[in-house]
Amino acid sequence: MRTAAAALVLALTLAGCSIYRTSADLVGFRPGPGANEITVIYAQRPADAAGELEILSQDAEQVRVKVLYRAAGGAQDDVAVEREAVGELDAPLGMRTVVDDDGEIVRVVQ
């Protein structure tokens, strides 16, 4: 079983696919589109797979988020494209602060 897993990892790696997911640089956020949703704008390379928004924690003061994506393998041009990921909160975002996984403030964008 362990050998098979290792072989799978090796195969994926040789195929240029990362088995790990990359945490994206967050550009900003805006509330919505749904009442309890938040849209996070993030930067990645064009060939990277679309990211998924993870709500790491949320309380009355703060919502902590990060976007994970699978990066394209091999050498890559370092051009950035902005993409959006939507996540569901327990309640409307309201006046809560949004921070990334390092605790840095994420700016609201119009």
């Binding site: 990362s18 990359t22 990066a71 041009d77 370092d78």
Partner: peptide, 12 residues
């Protein structure tokens, strides 16, 4: 003029 990156894993 900078162009691109290779490697670095998932955490850059």
């Amino acid at each position: 003029i900078f162009n691109g990156t290779h490697g670095g894993g998932s955490d850059s």
